Simulated scan of single mutants.
Amino acid sequence: MKKFDKKNKGKEIKSERETVERENIIEGRNPVIEAIKSGRTIEKLYVSKGDLEGSIKMIISLARERGIVVNEVERKRLDDMSTTKAHQGVIAVVGEYKYYDLEDILNLAREKGEDPFIIILDEIEDPHNLGSIIRSANIFGAHGVIIPKRRSALVTATVAKASAGAIEYTKIAKVTNLNQVIKELKENGIWVAALDMDGEICYNKDLRGPLAVVIGSEGRGVSRLVKENCDFVVKIPMFGEISSLNASVAAGVIMYEVRKQRGIKGE
């Protein structure tokens, strides 16, 4: 029988609390600026003493306008709090990230009068990739990103930093079963495409209309069952010696192709 160790148990509890706190922080100047602008609940804001110029000055001004208390601390304290190791002299402790439902994403498309454009991530475990994909989803006008509850990176400080603040404006849904979500999307008249190497070249496929695109994990790609439940499979053609793209780069390419086919109306 395993012995109950009170001493170690206390350490484990402390570790769990620290993990939760790290998931409730945003680091870096752009992510913090976007969090304040978007109206995200900021519980505490820390800035490095003696580093009050440029965008840090803007952050302090925005915070004070919204009644957020600014704490000037030694840079060493920020270094100790940081999980990204790239806090740029500012860390915000925020309320827990509010995940959305699939219906929230569909409603956004309806409100905009647009065909739904949704990104589904099949076990993207690298937080940098998740953040980059969320950033691209925002830039290319996707209405939301869907991630599974298990075997996936979640919204943390690293994801917020990699997204450059896009987590504040992009609806992210966390779901139990991707295959069930794909079924619901189909019932709502949305085509579901998997991005995988055995598909049709994406440039030759009509990607207009209601569409969800599944991006597979960094090492395994789209899982077999998920791919079988998709309506069709597309691929990005490769012209060099390397036969695969980083997941976030592949996501950016396919999102741009969807936006191009729908008509680019941006700047």
Results as ranks from 00 to 15, higher is better:
214 V>M: 09
37 K>D: 06
32 V>L: 13
192 V>C: 04
257 E>H: 07
3 K>T: 11
73 V>D: 11
227 K>L: 09
183 K>M: 10
142 A>S: 15
230 C>A: 11
152 S>A: 11
262 R>F: 07
19 T>L: 15
19 T>C: 07
108 L>C: 01
192 V>L: 06
157 A>V: 05
257 E>K: 08
103 E>R: 10
59 I>D: 03
25 I>M: 15
201 I>N: 15
101 D>Y: 13
27 E>F: 00
171 K>W: 11
113 G>W: 11
165 G>P: 08
174 K>Q: 11
33 I>R: 08
87 H>M: 02
152 S>K: 08
223 S>C: 00
158 T>M: 13
262 R>N: 14
263 G>D: 06
183 K>V: 02
243 S>F: 07
265 K>F: 08
47 V>H: 01
247 A>Y: 04
12 E>C: 00
198 D>M: 07
222 V>T: 13
72 E>G: 02
21 E>N: 03
15 S>L: 09
32 V>R: 12
42 I>T: 05
245 L>Y: 15
87 H>R: 01
160 A>P: 00
220 R>I: 07
189 G>F: 14
119 I>R: 01
37 K>P: 04
44 K>W: 04
132 S>N: 14
229 N>V: 02
2 K>M: 07
186 K>G: 13
54 G>V: 05
11 K>H: 10
30 N>T: 12
262 R>T: 00
201 I>L: 12
198 D>H: 14
97 Y>E: 04
43 E>N: 10
237 P>A: 02
95 G>V: 03
4 F>S: 03
245 L>A: 08
121 L>N: 07
91 I>N: 04
37 K>Q: 08
24 N>I: 01
196 D>H: 10
192 V>D: 00
240 G>F: 03
13 I>K: 13
10 G>T: 05
166 A>L: 11
217 S>C: 06
